[in-house]
Amino acid sequence: METKEFTCIRCPLGCNVVASLEDGKIISITGNTCPRGAEYVTNELTDPKRIVTTLVKVTGGENPVVSVKTASDIPKGKIFECLDALKSVNLKAPVRIGDVVLKNVCDCGVDIVATSNVR
């Protein structure tokens, strides 16, 4: 039997979660305080995902950039591809929280949305 340790990133508690594996299959998950910890570790072992937060250029507004995020988590391996895709986006002010900035980024099925207002 093999064990792997993780720091859960789903909330600031940062639980130390231990997964026990046999032939690559998860047989137990311990140390998590909530179901999200088990979900996180299962994902980490199979298909790690992250929410990406970054900036997109804006013209004609109070600031030259606006903060954005992936509306839900995307595969960890696609983070830099996602960031590259956002480099060519140039918005026009005003931008409102929740505005869709880019649809279906990198074919992940996830939209990029604005997280601040630029007047």
Binding site: C11, I51, T53, S67, K69, T115, S116
Partner: peptide
Amino acid sequence: CIHNGFGLHTFKEELTGPE
């Protein structure tokens, strides 16, 4: 603070700082 992780306790959802 444009990263996420705010509001899990207050709003039960994960927000960025500006949100």
